[in-house]
Amino acid sequence: MAIEKLAHAELRVPDIEKAIDYNVNVFGLKEMGRIGETFYLGCGFDNNYDLALTPGGAGIAHFAFQVKNDDDLKFYKKRVEDYGIKVEERTDAEPSEKKCIAFDLPATNIPIRMELITVEDRPAYFNPAFSPNRTLKGAGPHDLDHLGLKVANPKILAQFLESALDFKMSDIFMPAPGVYGAVWSRVQEYHHELAFMGGVGGPTESLDHIAFLFENIDHMKRALDMLALHDLKLEFGVGRHALGANLYAYYWACGNRYELSAEMPRVVDDQAETLIWNDITKSMSSWGVQMPASFKNGS
Results as ranks from 00 to 15, higher is better:
G84M: 14
K77P: 02
D82S: 11
K77R: 14
R79M: 09
I85Q: 05
A93W: 05
Y76C: 02
D70F: 10
N69E: 14
P95Q: 02
E88L: 15
R79T: 01
E81Y: 00
K77F: 04
P95V: 01
D71T: 15
N69D: 15
K74C: 05
D72M: 10
E97G: 01
G84H: 13
K68S: 06
E89I: 06
E94D: 03
F75Q: 11
L73P: 15
Y83K: 10
V87T: 03
E88R: 11
E89Y: 07
K78I: 14
D71P: 15
V87M: 07
R90K: 07
K78S: 14
E81H: 05
V67K: 06
F75I: 07
D71W: 12
D70K: 14
R90G: 00
R79S: 12
D72A: 14
D71K: 15
R90L: 09
K74P: 02
E94T: 09
K77A: 08
A93S: 10
F75A: 14
D92E: 09
R79F: 01
D92A: 14
D70N: 13
V87R: 05
K74M: 08
G84Y: 13
V87G: 05
V80Q: 10
A93K: 03
D82Q: 14
I85Y: 09
L73Q: 10
K74V: 06
F75C: 11
E97D: 06
V87D: 05
A93E: 06
G84P: 13
V80M: 10
K78E: 14
V67M: 07
D70G: 12
Y83C: 10
Y83I: 07
K86I: 12
E94F: 07
D92V: 05
F75Y: 15
E89K: 11
K68C: 03
D82L: 07
I85K: 08
K68P: 00
F75L: 11
K68W: 10
K68G: 08
E81G: 00
L73C: 10
V80H: 06
S96N: 03
D72K: 09
G84S: 14
K77Y: 02
K77W: 04
N69F: 11
P95S: 03
S96G: 00
K78D: 11
D71G: 15
K77G: 06
R90F: 01
G84L: 13
K78L: 12
E89A: 09
E94R: 07
L73E: 06
Y76G: 03
K74R: 12
P95Y: 01
N69C: 13
S96F: 01
E81I: 03
N69V: 05
V87E: 02
D92Q: 09
L73A: 08
K78A: 11
I85W: 04
R79P: 02
E94C: 02
Y76S: 00
D92F: 08
N69K: 13
V67R: 05
E89T: 08
E88S: 07
D70I: 13
A93M: 04
I85D: 09
V80S: 08
K86E: 12
E88F: 03
E88C: 04
V67L: 07
D72H: 15
D70S: 15
I85L: 12
E94A: 03
R90H: 03
P95H: 00
V67Q: 04
A93F: 04
E94Y: 08
K77C: 08
D72V: 06
E81A: 02
E94H: 03
K74S: 09
N69T: 07
K78N: 12
T91F: 06
E94W: 07
